[in-house]
Design a protein around this nucleic acid. Structure first.
Length: 645
RNA sequence: GCCGACGUAGCUCAGCUGGUAGAGCACUUCACUCGUAAUGAAGGGGUCCGGGGUUCGAGUCCCCGCGUCGGCUCCA
C-alpha cells in the first residue's frame, strides 16, 4: 500500500500496516514521538491498520505533541478516561456517561449513587489516583465488539447510560459493532482515538464540578460534570492557568465597580445600578445609536412599559413567553411589563394609517425591558433581568426586504467598526415551538439566506434556534473567558403583521400586509458595555470615557490654574476633573492610571506661565507639553471622530 | 429553574479543631507643597447575608431562605 506524506513524498508499506508501522518506517524518533495518525483528515490510533485508498494514496500525517489541537485533543480525551477510571475506583457504584475533549480541556459526566456528591475539595484525591494511572503508563487498547456483547457487558455492570447510548446507536444508525477502549481495568464505550498510553498526559488539572443534564435535556437527570484540562508540559499548563487568571482581571464584573461604572445589589437581582460614570458611558452609546440611526432613516419613538394582556395575547407572548414576563394585576385587569418592544411598536404602527409611500417605516426605541430570567442564568451585565435594547422594528413591503436586511447588516458592521469588535454571524431557523404558517417561515428563511449570500459573509446555520415568530441572523462575540454571547440580531417576521392585522395602502388603493424586521445591533446596552469593557480591558477611548481628562496640579498654588483648565475644557464639552487632593504628583498619576483615564494633564509653574498643559496619556506616559488650545483641539477631534486610539 | 461552591468593614482578604472580630487599600483629620504609577501620622467604620436550631457560649456546627460564582437548561 502507498500513502502520501505532507511533504508530497509517497510512503510504501506492506498491506495491513498500522499507523505505528508508518511512523517507524519514516524514522525511529518519529516512532517514539507518534501519538496517532491522521489519514485523509481523520485521526486514528497508531495500532489500527491503515486504510488503502480507493482513488490514489491516502494522505498520511503523523500526530505528535507538536500537532497542536489534534494532539491536545488526544491526551485530553485520554485524561477524561483516566479521570473516569479514578472516579470509578474511588466511588464504587458510580455510573459513567460521556467524557469528550473540548475546546480547552475535557470533561466527564458521572451519576453518583444516592447521597454521594462531589466537590472541588475531592479533586486532590482524584488527581492523585489519576497520577497513579499515568505513572503506570497503561496502554489504551481498542476492541471492536458486536453491539449486543457490549450491551450485555454494560447491563451486567449496571452502566445504564452506556446501555442507553448503545441502544441509540443500534436504533438510529444500525451499527453492528461498537468500539471499547481499555486502560488497565477500565473499559469505556468510546469512538476513540486515543494516544498509545496514559503516560503521554504530561500535565493535567481538574478545574471545576458542575451539574449537567443527561444529554443536555432539562427533563432528564442531572449528572455531575468534572471539568479539567491537560497539556504536554507543566509549563504549558501553568501558562494556560495564568492566562485564565489574567482574563479574570478583565472581567467586566470586576472592572465595572472598580472604575465606578455600575454595581449590583441584592434588592434587585439581575439589574445594574448605574453610577454617574457608567450612566455617562451608557448615554454615549445610546447617542451613537441615535446618531447612526438618524443617518439611516430611523425614527425614534417611545412606547409604554406595561400593557394589558390582550396585547400579549395578540402577539403570542401570553402563550409562548409568559413564564419570562413580569405579570401584575390591578382593577381586575391582567397587565404585563414588556419583555420586548415589538408588540408595542406593532400596536403603534396600527394606530395610524400608512401609505406605501411612507414605507419602510423604521421605528427605533432604546426601550427598557424586563424579563423574568431564571436566577441561575444571571451573569453580571451579560445576562440581566432589566435592560435596554437598541431596538428597531422596520415595517416594509416584501420587495423591500432584501434592501432592508442588507441595510441592517451594513448598519451592524458600521457599529462594530466603531469599537473594533469582530462578530460571528449565525442564521437561526424555525424552532419547534413557533407561531405562523409554514410558507411564511419558508419565505422568511429564504429572504435572510439571500441577504447573507448577497453580502458574501461567512455564517453558521443553527437549525431550530429562531425566535418563536421568525428566523433570525444573530451576531455573536466572545467575552474575556471565551464564552460566546449574542449581541445583535436581525429577525424577519411575517407573523406579527398578520396577528396585529397591520396594513398599508398600496398604489392600487388596496390594503396590503407589510413585513416586519426586528433588529438590535448592540443588542442590549448592558451586555454590550460588559463585552466592550472586557474587549478594551476597561480602557475606554476618549469619546466614551466618563472622565476624558484629569487635571493634576503639582502643588496647591496651581489649583487656580487647574480649575481654569477644567472650566475651559468643560465649556468645550469635555468631561474633565481636577485632582484637588494635597497628594504627590506620583500619587495623583497612579490613581488616574488605575482609573484608566485617557489623559492626565499635569500643571505646575511652567504650564501656568505658558498657558500649557503637560499631557500624559494612559499607559503611554508623558507625551510633552502643549498649549491648552491645542490639547482641546486634539481631544475634540478624537471625540468627534470617535477615535479608537 | 437544576447541580456544586462561596457570602467577614466601601474593596481585596485573614480569622486553626466553637471562647463575644483583624490586615492592606479606600475614607476623615493633621503635617508635608511635592514634576510623571503609592509622603507620613492619627482616627472613624462591622446586625460576621437573613431567619431558625444545637451549645454555658456560634463568624466558626446543623437546617431553611436570599444573593453571588462555576457549569447545565434557557436567552439580548
Amino acid at each position: 500500500m502507498e500513502l502520501e506524506l505532507p511533504d508530497g513524498n509517497i510512503l510504501a508499506l506492506p498491506d495491513g500496516a498500522t499507523g505505528a508501522d508508518a511512523a517507524a518506517a519514516i524514522g525511529p524518533g518519529l516512532a517514539r514521538a507518534a501519538l496517532a495518525v491522521k489519514v485523509d483528515g481523520e485521526v486514528q490510533d497508531l495500532a489500527r491498520p491503515l486504510p488503502s485508498g480507493n482513488q490514489g494514496p491516502p494522505k498520511l500525517e503523523i500526530i505528535t505533541e507538536r500537532s497542536g489541537q489534534d494532539a491536545l485533543g488526544l491526551i485530553r480525551h485520554d485524561a477524561a478516561h483516566v479521570l473516569a477510571a479514578a472516579v470509578m475506583e474511588l466511588y464504587p457504584g458510580v455510573k459513567i456517561s460521556i467524557g469528550p475533549p473540548i475546546e480547552n480541556g475535557f470533561y466527564y459526566d458521572f451519576a453518583f449513587p444516592e447521597g454521594v456528591s462531589l466537590s472541588e475539595a475531592d479533586f486532590e484525591r482524584i488527581e492523585a489516583k489519576m497520577r497513579e494511572h499515568i505513572a503506570a503508563d497503561e496502554p489504551f487498547t481498542r476492541e471492536d465488539v458486536p453491539a449486543q456483547d457490549a450491551l450485555d457487558r454494560f447491563r451486567r455492570e449496571g452502566q445504564d447510560y452506556k446501555v442507553e447510548l448503545i441502544e441509540d446507536l443500534v436504533r438510529d444508525q444500525a451499527v453492528p459493532t461498537v468500539s471499547l477502549y481499555t486502560n488497565n481495568g477500565f473499559t469505556d464505550l468510546c469512538r476513540g482515538p486515543h494516544a498509545p498510553s496514559t503516560k503521554r498526559i504530561k500535565a493535567f488539572k481538574l478545574q471545576s464540578v458542575a451539574g449537567a443534564y443527561w444529554r443536555g435535556d432539562s427533563s432528564k437527570p442531572m449528572l455531575t460534570r468534572v471539568y479539567g484540562t491537560a497539556f504536554f508540559s507543566e509549563k504549558d499548563l501553568q501558562e494556560y492557568l495564568a492566562r485564565l487568571e489574567q482574563a479574570r482581571a478583565r472581567d467586566h464584573r470586576r472592572l465595572g465597580p472598580q472604575l465606578g461604572l455600575f454595581t449590583f445589589s441584592e434588592v434587585s437581582p439581575g439589574a445594574a445600578f448605574w453610577l454617574p460614570a457608567g450612566t455617562e458611558v451608557f448615554n454615549s452609546l445610546v447617542a451613537l445609536s441615535r446618531e447612526m440611526g438618524r443617518e439611516r432613516g430611523y425614527v425614534e419613538v417611545k412606547t409604554p412599559q406595561i400593557y394589558d394582556s390582550s396585547l400579549w395575547r395578540t402577539s403570542g407572548h401570553w402563550q409562548k413567553y409568559r413564564e419570562n414576563m413580569f405579570v401584575t394585576e390591578y382593577e381586575g385587569r391582567q397587565m404585563a411589563v414588556k419583555p420586548m418592544n415589538c408588540p408595542g411598536h406593532c400596536h403603534l404602527y396600527s394606530l395610524q394609517r400608512h401609505s406605501y409611500r411612507e414605507l419602510p417605516v423604521r421605528y427605533w426605541e432604546p426601550g427598557l425591558l424586563h424579563r423574568r430570567e431564571p436566577s441561575g442564568t444571571l451573569h453580571g451585565l451579560l445576562r440581566v433581568r432589566h435592560f435596554a435594547q437598541d431596538d428597531s422594528h422596520i415595517f416594509c413591503t416584501e420587495d423591500q426586504i432584501q434592501d432592508e436586511v442588507s441595510g441592517v447588516l451594513e448598519f451592524a458592521f458600521a457599529t462594530y467598526e466603531v469599537f473594533g469588535i469582530d462578530v460571528k454571524l449565525e442564521l437561526s431557523t424555525r424552532p419547534e415551538d413557533r407561531i405562523g404558517a409554514e410558507e411564511l417561515w419558508d419565505k422568511s428563511e429564504t429572504a435572510l439566506l439571500q441577504a447573507l449570500d448577497a453580502h458574501g459573509l461567512p455564517y453558521k446555520i443553527s437549525e431550530g434556534e429562531g425566535a418563536f415568530y421568525g428566523p433570525k441572523i444573530d451576531l455573536h462575540m466572545t467575552d474575556s473567558l471565551g464564552r460566546s454571547w449574542q449581541l445583535g440580531t436581525c429577525q424577519l417576521d411575517y407573523n406579527f403583521p398578520e396577528r396585529f392585522e397591520l396594513t398599508y395602502t398600496g398604489p392600487d388603493n388596496a390594503e396590503h400586509r407589510p413585513v416586519m424586521i426586528h433588529r438590535a445591533l448592540m443588542g442590549s446596552y448592558e451586555r454590550f458595555i460588559g463585552i466592550l469593557l472586557e474587549h478594551l480591558n476597561g480602557e475606554l477611548p476618549p469619546w466614551l470615557a466618563p472622565v476624558q481628562a484629569i487635571v493634576l496640579p503639582i502643588a496647591d498654588r496651581h489649583l487656580d490654574y487647574a480649575g481654569a483648565v477644567r472650566d475651559r475644557l468643560w465649556a468645550e464639552g469635555g468631561r474633565v476633573e481636577v485632582d484637588e487632593r494635597t497628594e504627590s504628583v506620583g500619587r495623583k498619576i497612579r490613581d488616574a492610571e488605575l482609573r484608566k483615564i485617557p489623559y492626565m494633564l499635569v500643571v505646575g509653574d511652567r504650564e501656568q506661565e505658558g498657558g500649557q498643559v503637560s499631557v500624559r496619556e494612559h499607559r503611554r506616559g508623558d507625551v510633552g507639553s502643549v498649549a491648552l488650545d491645542e490639547f482641546i483641539g486634539r481631544l475634540s477631534e478624537q471625540v468627534k471622530t470617535r477615535a479608537r486610539i
